[in-house]
Amino acid sequence: MTLAAVIVPFLALCVAARSIAFLPALGIMTAVAMLIDGLTPLQEAGAAFAVILGVGPVLFLNFYQYDEVRERKVIAAPFLLPGVMILLMLMNLYPDGTVFPAGICVVMAGLVTVSVRQTMVWQWAGLLTCAEGVLLSAVMYRQVTAFAVTALIGCCIAILGGACVHRVMPRVHVVRAPVRQERKNKKWQRSQQDDGDALDHAAGAPHPDYVPQRSGASDRGPAS
């Protein structure tokens, strides 16, 4: 039982209570908890997958507009979660109190996140937390087949969730588009000014060929 294995469930708790932003920290700490016991190929592969599943989705999400406002505040969730974890630990500890079931606790946190939170991104984070937890316990109990299956399912969930995010949420560059348009307008103004057009008009104003003629005609009318 290491300190890293104790910190991992608390980071999973943060994912459930606050937001998906704690997922990279959870992935990296899971990797540390795996690598601290030794450096077998299974542990290295497990650490690699834990980091990929933790960091990848959050990096991907940076390209999309994600608003957390839509989430209804559920205050019970963070309190429910430690209860479930402590219950599990008590259940698990009394036969042979040597191994802290960190992986199972992380899985529980992920399941609570999936069932309590309503927005898609948060549920995605919950499923990825589950995958991290199962990866951790597969590495801790040295089960290669279970590890391979979990890595496969976790990657598929990350990809399918990313595809769903791609289809449901607006991309960030769509928001930047008007800015680019303004820049284009400014460029057009500059090119107009370079051509020798001395008229000081705003962007999007009517064409200078037409406006002065009419106003000039109405102004000149009474004078002549």
Partner: peptide, 20 residues
């Protein structure tokens, strides 16, 4: 897309429970 996501969500919960 969201129908697919809801199916994936509830079934993946079952998969992870069985795996654990």
């Amino acid at each position: 897309a969201m129908v697919g996501w809801r199916i994936l969500r509830s079934m993946a919960v079952g998969l992870f429970l069985v795996l654990a």
